[in-house]
Every structure is written in structure tokens, then in C-alpha cells.
Nucleic acid binder design. Structure first.
Lengths: 202, 202
DNA sequence: TATGATTGTCTGACCGGTCAGACAATAGTG
DNA sequence: CACTATTGTCTGACCGGTCAGACAATCATA
């Protein structure tokens, strides 16, 4: 690989490697991904990945942390942007933020699924995966609590528990969708909305 | 490893290897499991695994197929056993059959999660994983349809869609539970039941 | 002894990680 | 400005180790 004309700074290179790793994981899976795959995706030598990251595991952890940062910030933004529109609109915007685009959503869940599996076995992975899950639930709880308080959702809901259910619906239906090649992305989004609002009794 | 006193017949040995593979996957993860792990768990030499299965991948596929066979049969049994008790009891028994015992359920979802991931990438895995998912949904649809027809569940539910939601709840909440070391298994089961029946409006 | 089951051993492929050094940019010096 | 030293970035070659699978020898039984 020819050296890039203008050397990018360190932060830029790290990002490029993380994006490469993300793509490589989506393609080969967490367990099967190799440093060479990452390097190829990033258009860079394998040794460089280890120049920027202590080892393979640290690189992969950093991928999850990056995903977490990006997605959760976007989701939180969607919620606060719609604060004046009421909890129903907030939840809708939140779901929209999480399911942004067919290809993106597909890749995300391919990678996320692997991180779930890895987080249950490798201690280092656990922390960052858990942070994403709990972070999302916190956001969901906030909206659900408001919806319940304002009488837009079922009164008998306990916000913490309901948030976990919303999370389960998102994860569960996303996984199922990954297996349905035939179903258009838009229809999946509809089903997800119906399931969530159906559960919340909205 | 000492040879077993009485040589078991082929079917028995296959089962033993499959059980070993199941345990090994639960421990190390699908991507990281080695033939040696499987052999160790089965108390047998590595070469024997390749004597009974064409290669590693075939062995792993067979694991998923075995799981599918066992679990789905048990779930179907639970449903038919409670046919006279009505759809609510059937669904309860079905959920009970799927979540049978903390350790078993935990191991199952550890393995299942990996098969989901593998099924999305390897063609050979896809078929057997998909069979399990769709098979479960068929069972769920049957019960939901009856519940809707008899007015025990919400009238506006479309059974096929609702079955997918029930499946999503089981998967999603199970995954979350795996991450909560503190939550007792019984409480998870309660939450699952509340979520499912809450959604169905029962 | 003949046959199928089981094992130990070997090998080629691959992977993570190291390392010496190449190259470009920058800083310092006269 | 011209020249050199220094630093940070990046690579190809390589090493130790692991794994899937092949294979021939051994064992148990009929």
C-alpha cells in the first residue's frame, strides 16, 4: 500500500482503523476477524493496526466504544430535539435514530450481536457492551416515565421494566429482520413501531 | 484417555460428541471453540470427532440441529399438553418449556446467540438456525391465534406479527438477563411473562 | 483373524505479535 | 538558505504458537 500523500494525524488514522475493523467484523464476524482483514479494509498494513492499538483485543474494544459513543449520542439528541413534541414523538424519533438506514442498521446489528456474545465471555468486552445496553435503557426509561406520567402510555407500567422490554423488542426484532432477506427495511421499522407502541398501550 | 469399557454404538457416540460440542461452545464461544475443546468435553480424542463428522463445521451444524430438535419438541409438547386449559395456560407452559432452569437456559442462550451470528454469515449454518426461529414462531402463532379468536388476547393483533413480537421478547429479554449477574432467574421469568402478556393485552 | 472404532502423531496453513529499518516531516544549526 | 539530526509513521519479513485435518498404528470385539 502506497503511503498516503499527506500523512493524516493520529486521531484520523485511528478512526480509519476503527472503521476498517467495524467493516471487517460485519463481514467475517467477531470471532473470525483477523488483523489482516482489518488492515485490508483500512487500506493499510497489518503492523500499523498494532502500532495504534496495544493488541487485537484493545482494537476491538475500541470499536465497541466508538459505536456506543456515536449511536447513543445520536439517540439522545433525537430525544432532546423532540422534548416539546411529547413522549410519543420522542420515542418515535429515538427509534428512527437507532434504525437509520437499511445497510447501516444491518451492519450495526451484525456487529452488535457479536459484541453481545463476546461481552458475555471476555471481561474487557463486557464493560463497553454493557455500557451501551444500560445507556440505551436509561434513555428509554426517561421517555417511558414521561409518557406514563402524562398518561400517554399504560398507567401500570414500571418505567425501568418497560425500558428493558422496549430494548428487548428492538434487539429481538432487529435480529429476526436480519434473517428475513425478503422483508423491506421500511416494513421492519413499521413492525417495530407497532410492537413498541402496542406494548406501551399507546 | 482410557477407552470406555463397552463401546457405545455410533448414535450414542455422536450424541456424546454433540453434548461435548454444546458445552464447549457455551464455554468458549462459537468462533473460538476448537476440536480439542470438544474432544476434552466429550472425554475422547480429537481425531474421533472427525471420524464421526466430516469436518468441524458439520459438527457444529449438527449441534444446532440437535438443539432445535430437543427444544422445539419440548415446546410443542407443552402446548399440546395444555390444549384443554386454554391459550393463556398454553403460552405459560410454552414459556416455561423454553426457560427451563437457570443454568440450562443460560447455556442455551450463550450458544444460540453464537448460532444467530454464525447463521447470518455461513450458509450452512443459516438453514438450521432459521428452522429453529421459524419453528418457534409457528408454535407461538398457533397459540396467539387461538387466544385472539377466543377473545383472551387483544383483538387487533395479527397472529403472525404478534408471534414475531413474542419471539423478540423472549430473545431480547434473555440476552439482557445474561448480562445481569445479580438478577435471580425466577425474577427474569416473571418479567418475561409480564412483558409477553402485557403485549398481548391479556 | 478380520473389521470397525479409537488414538497419537504429524503437517501445512494461518494468525497475532515483534522488529529492524525505510520514509517523510520537522527542528535545529551554521 | 543549505545541511543534518531527530522524531513520528508505516511497512515487509519473520517467529512462535495453534489449529484443522490426514494418516497409520493400535485396540476391542465377534
Amino acid at each position: 500500500m502506497a503511503r498516503v500523500a499527506k500523512p493524516e494525524d493520529a486521531a484520523e488514522m485511528r478512526k480509519r482503523l476503527l472503521r476498517g475493523a467495524y467493516a471487517a467484523i460485519a463481514e467475517h464476524g467477531f470471532g473470525a476477524v483477523t488483523l489482516q482483514d482489518v488492515a485490508d479494509q483500512a487500506g493499510v498494513s497489518k503492523a500499523l493496526a498494532l502500532y495504534y492499538f496495544k493488541n487485537k483485543e484493545q482494537l476491538l474494544v475500541a470499536v465497541m466504544e466508538r459505536i456506543d459513543g456515536i449511536i447513543r449520542a445520536r439517540a439522545a439528541q433525537a430525544i432532546s430535539d423532540n422534548a416539546s413534541e411529547g413522549p410519543r414523538a420522542q420515542l418515535l424519533a429515538y427509534l428512527g435514530a437507532l434504525t437509520q438506514g437499511a445497510q447501516r442498521h444491518r451492519d450495526f446489528y451484525l456487529v452488535y450481536l457479536d459484541f453481545l456474545s463476546a461481552g458475555l465471555r471476555k471481561v474487557d468486552m463486557r464493560a463497553s457492551t454493557l455500557r451501551f445496553i444500560l445507556g440505551c435503557e436509561t434513555l428509554e426509561e426517561e421517555v417511558v416515565a414521561r409518557g406514563v406520567a402524562e398518561g400517554e402510555f399504560r398507567r401500570d407500567l414500571e418505567p425501568g421494566e418497560a425500558a428493558a422490554v422496549v430494548r428487548a423488542l428492538i434487539d429481538g426484532l432487529s435480529i429476526e429482520w436480519l434473517f428475513r432477506d425478503d422483508e423491506p427495511f421500511a416494513r421492519f421499522c413499521e413492525r417495530l413501531r407497532r410492537a413498541v407502541f402496542g406494548y406501551l398501550g399507546a
